[in-house]
Protein backbone atom coordinates (compact mmCIF):
# COMPACT_ATOMS: atom_id res chain seq x y z
CA UNK A 1 0.00 0.00 0.00
CA UNK A 2 1.14 3.56 -0.58
CA UNK A 3 3.03 5.12 2.24
CA UNK A 4 2.37 8.80 2.75
CA UNK A 5 4.79 9.02 5.64
CA UNK A 6 4.27 10.99 8.81
CA UNK A 7 2.26 14.17 8.36
CA UNK A 8 4.34 17.31 8.73
CA UNK A 9 2.85 20.45 10.13
CA UNK A 10 2.80 23.11 7.45
CA UNK A 11 5.05 25.99 8.45
CA UNK A 12 3.06 28.91 9.73
CA UNK A 13 0.19 26.83 11.05
CA UNK A 14 0.35 28.05 14.61
CA UNK A 15 -1.80 25.46 16.30
CA UNK A 16 -1.08 22.74 13.80
CA UNK A 17 -4.44 22.73 12.06
CA UNK A 18 -3.12 21.94 8.60
CA UNK A 19 -1.20 18.74 8.04
CA UNK A 20 0.79 18.01 4.91
CA UNK A 21 1.90 14.46 4.25
CA UNK A 22 5.58 13.96 3.48
CA UNK A 23 7.07 11.43 1.16
CA UNK A 24 9.10 8.77 2.92
CA UNK A 25 11.81 7.56 0.53
CA UNK A 26 12.60 4.50 2.64
CA UNK A 27 10.93 1.15 3.09
CA UNK A 28 12.06 -1.99 4.91
CA UNK A 29 11.67 -5.07 2.75
CA UNK A 30 13.02 -7.46 5.37
CA UNK A 31 15.44 -10.26 4.76
CA UNK A 32 18.53 -11.59 6.44
CA UNK A 33 21.99 -12.38 5.12
CA UNK A 34 24.63 -14.35 6.98
CA UNK A 35 28.04 -15.71 6.25
CA UNK A 36 30.53 -18.11 7.84
CA UNK A 37 34.15 -18.18 6.72
CA UNK A 38 36.54 -21.06 7.17
CA UNK A 39 40.17 -21.74 6.35
CA UNK A 40 39.52 -22.34 2.68
CA UNK A 41 35.84 -21.60 2.12
CA UNK A 42 33.11 -19.07 2.76
CA UNK A 43 29.39 -19.67 2.74
CA UNK A 44 26.95 -16.85 2.17
CA UNK A 45 23.30 -17.43 2.88
CA UNK A 46 20.29 -15.20 2.30
CA UNK A 47 16.57 -15.77 2.52
CA UNK A 48 14.38 -14.93 -0.46
CA UNK A 49 11.31 -13.45 1.20
CA UNK A 50 10.35 -9.94 0.13
CA UNK A 51 8.02 -8.30 2.66
CA UNK A 52 6.12 -5.05 2.57
CA UNK A 53 4.49 -4.42 5.93
CA UNK A 54 2.62 -7.63 6.62
CA UNK A 55 2.32 -8.63 2.95
CA UNK A 56 4.61 -10.81 0.88
CA UNK A 57 4.67 -9.47 -2.70
CA UNK A 58 7.10 -12.16 -3.81
CA UNK A 59 8.79 -15.19 -2.30
CA UNK A 60 11.76 -15.30 -4.63
CA UNK A 61 13.92 -12.24 -4.46
CA UNK A 62 17.66 -12.65 -4.76
CA UNK A 63 19.74 -10.76 -2.25
CA UNK A 64 23.21 -11.89 -3.22
CA UNK A 65 25.39 -10.45 -5.97
CA UNK A 66 28.28 -12.38 -7.44
CA UNK A 67 31.14 -9.95 -7.80
CA UNK A 68 33.63 -12.44 -9.14
CA UNK A 69 34.61 -16.08 -8.62
CA UNK A 70 35.99 -15.34 -5.20
CA UNK A 71 33.81 -12.58 -3.75
CA UNK A 72 30.09 -12.13 -3.17
CA UNK A 73 27.98 -9.32 -1.78
CA UNK A 74 24.82 -10.00 0.23
CA UNK A 75 22.38 -7.23 1.06
CA UNK A 76 19.29 -6.99 3.27
CA UNK A 77 17.03 -3.98 3.75
CA UNK A 78 15.31 -1.88 1.12
CA UNK A 79 15.08 -3.62 -2.23
CA UNK A 80 15.20 -0.48 -4.40
CA UNK A 81 18.42 0.65 -2.72
CA UNK A 82 19.81 -2.91 -2.87
CA UNK A 83 19.24 -3.00 -6.63
CA UNK A 84 20.84 0.43 -7.11
CA UNK A 85 23.80 -0.45 -4.87
CA UNK A 86 24.40 -3.75 -6.67
CA UNK A 87 24.39 -1.96 -10.01
CA UNK A 88 26.89 0.63 -8.76
CA UNK A 89 29.17 -2.07 -7.37
CA UNK A 90 29.00 -4.18 -10.55
CA UNK A 91 29.82 -1.16 -12.67
CA UNK A 92 32.70 -0.12 -10.44
CA UNK A 93 34.03 -3.67 -10.51
CA UNK A 94 33.97 -3.76 -14.30
CA UNK A 95 35.69 -0.38 -14.46
CA UNK A 96 38.37 -1.66 -12.09
CA UNK A 97 38.95 -4.72 -14.24
CA UNK A 98 39.25 -2.57 -17.35
CA UNK A 99 41.57 -0.09 -15.68
CA UNK A 100 43.81 -2.52 -13.86
CA UNK A 101 43.60 -5.65 -15.95
CA UNK A 102 43.03 -7.72 -12.84
CA UNK A 103 40.17 -9.08 -10.84
CA UNK A 104 39.17 -7.20 -7.70
CA UNK A 105 40.47 -8.84 -4.53
CA UNK A 106 38.38 -9.35 -1.43
CA UNK A 107 40.10 -6.49 0.39
CA UNK A 108 39.59 -4.15 -2.54
CA UNK A 109 35.88 -4.95 -2.73
CA UNK A 110 35.35 -4.49 0.99
CA UNK A 111 37.06 -1.11 0.96
CA UNK A 112 35.19 0.00 -2.14
CA UNK A 113 31.81 -0.87 -0.70
CA UNK A 114 32.61 1.17 2.38
CA UNK A 115 33.41 4.27 0.32
CA UNK A 116 30.41 3.78 -1.98
CA UNK A 117 28.13 3.64 1.05
CA UNK A 118 29.77 6.66 2.64
CA UNK A 119 29.34 8.74 -0.51
CA UNK A 120 25.66 8.65 0.35
CA UNK A 121 26.27 9.56 3.97
CA UNK A 122 23.51 12.22 3.98
CA UNK A 123 20.91 10.19 2.08
CA UNK A 124 22.03 6.65 2.79
CA UNK A 125 21.29 3.44 1.01
CA UNK A 126 18.94 1.63 3.39
CA UNK A 127 20.99 -1.54 3.08
CA UNK A 128 22.69 -3.94 5.45
CA UNK A 129 25.54 -5.58 3.65
CA UNK A 130 28.03 -8.35 3.97
CA UNK A 131 30.96 -8.97 1.66
CA UNK A 132 32.28 -12.51 1.74
CA UNK A 133 35.20 -13.99 -0.13
CA UNK A 134 38.56 -15.70 -0.29
CA UNK A 135 41.55 -13.45 0.17
CA UNK A 136 44.78 -13.71 -1.82
CA UNK A 137 45.98 -16.64 0.25
CA UNK A 138 42.72 -18.50 -0.25
CA UNK A 139 41.52 -18.01 3.33
CA UNK A 140 37.85 -17.16 3.83
CA UNK A 141 36.81 -13.83 5.35
CA UNK A 142 33.63 -11.80 5.74
CA UNK A 143 33.03 -8.11 6.29
CA UNK A 144 29.85 -6.78 7.89
CA UNK A 145 28.66 -3.23 7.16
CA UNK A 146 26.20 -0.78 8.57
CA UNK A 147 24.12 1.48 6.31
CA UNK A 148 26.81 4.13 5.95
CA UNK A 149 29.84 1.97 5.39
CA UNK A 150 31.41 1.24 8.76
CA UNK A 151 32.85 -2.25 8.48
CA UNK A 152 34.80 -4.92 10.27
CA UNK A 153 36.50 -8.00 8.89
CA UNK A 154 35.56 -11.14 10.78
CA UNK A 155 34.87 -14.83 10.35
CA UNK A 156 31.14 -14.79 10.95
CA UNK A 157 28.68 -12.02 10.20
CA UNK A 158 24.88 -11.73 10.16
CA UNK A 159 23.01 -8.72 8.93
CA UNK A 160 19.37 -7.82 8.47
CA UNK A 161 16.17 -8.66 10.31
CA UNK A 162 17.16 -11.97 11.85
CA UNK A 163 20.56 -10.82 13.15
CA UNK A 164 19.56 -10.65 16.79
CA UNK A 165 18.24 -14.19 16.67
CA UNK A 166 21.13 -15.75 14.77
CA UNK A 167 24.31 -13.96 15.84
CA UNK A 168 24.42 -15.44 19.40
CA UNK A 169 24.09 -18.94 17.95
CA UNK A 170 27.04 -18.39 15.61
CA UNK A 171 29.13 -16.86 18.41
CA UNK A 172 28.57 -19.96 20.45
CA UNK A 173 29.02 -22.63 17.78
CA UNK A 174 31.74 -21.15 15.57
CA UNK A 175 33.65 -18.84 17.87
CA UNK A 176 33.17 -21.04 20.93
CA UNK A 177 32.60 -17.76 22.77
CA UNK A 178 30.98 -19.20 25.89
CA UNK A 179 33.68 -21.76 26.52
CA UNK A 180 35.80 -21.15 29.59
CA UNK A 181 39.19 -21.86 28.09
CA UNK A 182 38.45 -22.24 24.41
CA UNK A 183 39.52 -25.87 24.47
CA UNK A 184 38.06 -28.05 21.78
CA UNK A 185 37.15 -25.14 19.53
CA UNK A 186 35.91 -26.76 16.37
CA UNK A 187 37.32 -25.99 12.98
CA UNK A 188 34.10 -26.23 11.03
CA UNK A 189 34.15 -27.94 7.69
CA UNK A 190 32.08 -26.65 4.79
CA UNK A 191 29.36 -29.21 5.43
CA UNK A 192 29.19 -28.47 9.16
CA UNK A 193 29.02 -24.74 8.52
CA UNK A 194 26.23 -25.26 5.97
CA UNK A 195 24.24 -27.37 8.44
CA UNK A 196 24.71 -24.76 11.14
CA UNK A 197 23.55 -22.06 8.74
CA UNK A 198 20.42 -24.03 7.90
CA UNK A 199 19.66 -24.57 11.60
CA UNK A 200 20.12 -20.91 12.41
CA UNK A 201 17.88 -19.75 9.57
CA UNK A 202 15.24 -22.33 10.44
CA UNK A 203 15.14 -20.98 14.00
CA UNK A 204 15.04 -17.41 12.75
CA UNK A 205 12.18 -18.27 10.38
CA UNK A 206 10.16 -19.55 13.35
CA UNK A 207 10.35 -16.32 15.28
CA UNK A 208 10.86 -13.55 12.75
CA UNK A 209 8.08 -12.84 10.28
CA UNK A 210 10.30 -11.37 7.59
CA UNK A 211 12.49 -14.49 7.37
CA UNK A 212 11.26 -17.53 5.47
CA UNK A 213 10.42 -19.08 2.08
CA UNK A 214 13.71 -20.23 0.55
CA UNK A 215 17.28 -20.03 1.73
CA UNK A 216 19.97 -19.59 -0.90
CA UNK A 217 23.34 -20.83 0.28
CA UNK A 218 26.33 -19.92 -1.88
CA UNK A 219 29.51 -21.85 -1.15
CA UNK A 220 32.71 -20.18 -2.30
CA UNK A 221 35.79 -22.37 -2.54
CA UNK A 222 38.88 -22.35 -4.71
CA UNK A 223 36.88 -24.39 -7.24
CA UNK A 224 34.30 -21.69 -7.69
CA UNK A 225 30.82 -20.92 -6.38
CA UNK A 226 28.06 -23.47 -5.83
CA UNK A 227 24.48 -22.70 -4.97
CA UNK A 228 22.32 -24.81 -2.69
CA UNK A 229 18.67 -23.96 -2.10
CA UNK A 230 17.01 -24.97 1.13
CA UNK A 231 13.30 -24.61 1.86
CA UNK A 232 12.29 -22.64 4.93
CA UNK A 233 8.84 -22.28 6.47
CA UNK A 234 6.49 -20.32 4.28
CA UNK A 235 4.16 -19.04 7.00
Amino acid sequence: MMDFGTPVLEPGSANGTKQVPQFNPYQDNGGTVASIAGDDYVIVAADTRFTLGYSIPTRKISRVLKINDKVMLGTAGMQADTCALHKVISTRMRMYEHDNNKRMTFNAVSQMLSTVLYYKRFFPYYTFNIVAGLDDKGEGWVCGYDAIGSFEQRKIVCNGAGTKLMQPVFDNQVDWAQSWDGAGKPNLSLEQATDLMKDAFTSAAEREITVGDTLQIYKITKDGIQLEEFELKKD
Binding site: L165, Q167, S203
Partner: peptide
Amino acid sequence: TEMLLGACETF
Protein backbone atom coordinates in the same frame (compact mmCIF):
# COMPACT_ATOMS: atom_id res chain seq x y z
CA THR B 1 14.66 -11.32 24.41
CA GLU B 2 15.18 -11.70 20.64
CA MET B 3 18.69 -13.05 21.09
CA LEU B 4 17.44 -15.48 23.69
CA LEU B 5 14.61 -16.55 21.37
CA GLY B 6 16.96 -17.32 18.50
CA ALA B 7 19.32 -19.25 20.74
CA CYS B 8 16.56 -21.21 22.51
CA GLU B 9 14.86 -22.00 19.21
CA THR B 10 18.09 -23.51 17.89
CA PHE B 11 19.16 -25.51 20.93
